[in-house]
Amino acid sequence: MRKIVKLLAISLAMLVLAAPAFAGKLESIKAAGVLKAGVKDSQVPFGYVDEKTSKIVGFEIDLVQALADKLGVKLDVKPVTSATRIPMLTQGDIDIIAATMTHKKEREDQIDFSITYFQTGQKLLVKKDGGVKSVADLAGKKVGSAKGSTSEQNVKKAQPECTVVSFETYPEAFLALKQGKVQAVTTDESILLGLKNSDEKPGDYEIVGEYISPEPYGLGLVENDSDFRDFVNLTLMELWETGKFQAMYNKWFGEDTPNYIPLNWQMELWP
């Protein structure tokens, strides 16, 4: 009996003592030798599990890999969802979020953002003969989205007459669309394109409507750590200026990929 109590006391004490000393992210990542990045694990082509290697790959993984290379540390990717990514970052589970996250003002209260590394906008993915062509047609219909995403909140504002059904991930929302349980899936065009193309018959679906909202993606960083933020921003710019960013982009979104999106925007470059 006494042994158990002692054991419990010791483990409790260890938990408390294990709290890390306060240091900048840049130093703590270098000291640990690992950059822990929160990424999507089922979002073609941003981040998804490759069937052959069972490893998470994608555009955002390449991007954080470049950051890790620059730091000279190992990359450790951790799957996150739209609902878990911000808590995981603020809790220190991960050092950086690269998970199709829109840079929103409200999120600035919790975390900081890098400069924009991807630009897209929110649209609707529908069945070709489903009768939905725009946000106006959604009145009285069900729309699928993901919990904790901006898309969920935007579409409710744009069309208060629709019912939003939120899933853990977008592919689940797409599956519901496929099976006819919702009449549209709404999120960023780039994600919708990935969903559509991952289906066996992409021709059955189309992306419709005006942009409901612009969606610039930024990497999520811990609040108030300007050294680390500078490092990330400067590295992103360097990748763009040296053409490495464009190469990475073309690997996942180029003309000869199924997820073709022309690169029609410029990264913010500081002189």
């Binding site: 599990v49 951790k78 592919p171 689940e172 991952s198």
Partner: peptide
């Protein structure tokens, strides 16, 4: 987000659909 059996199933389900 723990990578256990149910998570593995939803991952594969999400990819293959």
């Amino acid at each position: 987000g723990v990578n256990e059996l149910t998570k593995a199933a939803t991952q594969v389900n999400n990819r293959t659909m």
